[in-house]
Amino acid sequence: MEVSCSSLDHQQVQNVDDNGKPKRTGPKMATFCAIAQYASLYGLTVGYTITAAISLRAALKAFCFHMKGHDAPCQYASNPYMIAMGILEVFLSQIPSFHELTWLSGLAAVMSIGYSAIGTALSFAKIVSEQSDEEGQLGGVSATTLFYLMCDCFGYAAFGNEAPGNMLTGFGFYEPFWLVALGNIFIVVHLVGAYQVFSQPIVGAVETLARRKFPESKLVMAEYPLKFGNKEFNINFLRIVWRTVFVAVATLLSMAFPFFNAILSLLRAIGFWPCTVFLPIQMHVVQKKIRRESIKWIGLQLLNLLCLLVAVAAAVSSIEGFSSALQTYKPFKTIG
């Protein structure tokens, strides 16, 4: 789990300088951690917009292939679906409190388990089918992780090195078409909710900062009641403008850079080691007063080095994927 940026303000990570005096580097590390985390979160909103459009296209293609045959030229543009996703997220983003989105995040979690189960079942069915032709025959996060792991393992067992990045959108399966389409709809619903979960920390941080800087501004502070049927909502000028701009920019980026998932992978690779490994280890060493060059200290540093190498490898892989995508890159023109 990534270390909380705010915790670094209170828990100063100390190093010792040449004179034996402690150096406090917490604020600088907190700033870097915050930038890395917020960049990753914003990148996720762009990536989710792209993936949602791909899944919507895949659902339509499942019906198209079923009706016209697997060789039919079932091609759909992504931009209309990205725009639709953006419009929906603009409305959802106006919900003022993150806690009011509990139902949405819960629904997203259920959808995640749903499409993972479908992918796992389809992969397992393909394995059984192939064997028949040839041979004649934890809850919460842990549960979700198990589903993802099973989906990956069965997917690789079914397709080997030819396994698509997403089995439900890469058309490793054509039938039953309705189940493939349903799995993709589950993905879309999951991403709609996940978009808000990951965007709320960013929009909330900016709005909190604005309220602190401009406590007397009506544009920032004033809430205006608005009735819609039997329900009453509060609208705020800052919230309307800022969150709409936030979603609009993310939507434009997704349309301009349909390979943004490669960029997102690079951002996450850059932020992984310092925020998830290096900083927590440094804080642990300081808190527990672990002596330098002790066995425990050496073990932690080896873990640190190993994770750094993994992060570098992930970054190199992301750059390679980014470079490959650029060769066929056409902004605002994604059809598949």
Rank of each mutant, 00 (worst) to 15 (best):
G86N: 04
I263Y: 14
L41R: 13
F332K: 05
E216I: 00
T208C: 12
N184T: 02
F98I: 05
E135G: 03
V310D: 14
T251V: 15
K227V: 03
G299M: 10
K289H: 08
I202K: 10
G170K: 02
Q75M: 04
G271H: 04
H190S: 10
A125Y: 00
W178L: 11
H284C: 10
A314V: 03
W273C: 10
A72T: 05
E162Y: 07
L44P: 00
Q137E: 13
Q37S: 15
G155D: 03
S105N: 09
G165S: 12
Q137W: 03
N304P: 06
S254P: 06
L60K: 14
Q11T: 13
K330C: 13
F228P: 01
T102I: 04
A256Q: 15
G43W: 04
T334Q: 11
P225H: 09
Y38T: 06
S78N: 08
I298R: 14
A77H: 13
S129A: 15
L252R: 10
A34W: 07
F177R: 04
A143Q: 01
A108Q: 03
M111E: 06
M67F: 09
R212S: 14
A34D: 02
A125T: 01
T244F: 00
T244I: 01
T208M: 14
T334I: 03
K288M: 14
N304C: 13
Q131W: 06
A77C: 08
A163V: 09
L252G: 15
I35T: 09
E293L: 13
A77G: 05
L182K: 08
F272M: 11
F124R: 07
C74Y: 00
L226W: 13
P225T: 04
S294Y: 00
E320G: 12
K213W: 12
G321I: 02
L308K: 04
R57L: 09
E100C: 08
A222N: 08
I290P: 05
C5R: 14
M82N: 09
Q196P: 08
L266N: 05
F237M: 15
L303N: 15
I298L: 15
Y42E: 02
A52Y: 02
G139W: 06
P22C: 06
I335W: 08
L60A: 13
K21I: 00
M283V: 15
P225A: 10
A36E: 02
Y38V: 05
P201M: 03
L60W: 02
A194E: 09
D152S: 11
L8M: 15
C153V: 06
L56G: 13
A84E: 01
Q301G: 06
L238Y: 00
M29I: 10
S116H: 07
S323G: 02
G183F: 03
E223T: 01
I87K: 00
A39P: 02
C153W: 03
P164F: 00
A157T: 04
S142Q: 10
V249N: 08
A256R: 11
C275Q: 04
A314H: 06
F65W: 05
K21E: 12
L209G: 08
N230Q: 11
M167V: 14
C74V: 00
N15T: 15
S254G: 15
A125L: 04
I95M: 07
A84Q: 02
N236D: 04
L191P: 11
A39F: 10
F159P: 06
T51P: 02
L41T: 04
L209T: 07
Q200E: 03
N166M: 03
K28S: 09
I127A: 10
Q75A: 11
T251F: 05
S324A: 14
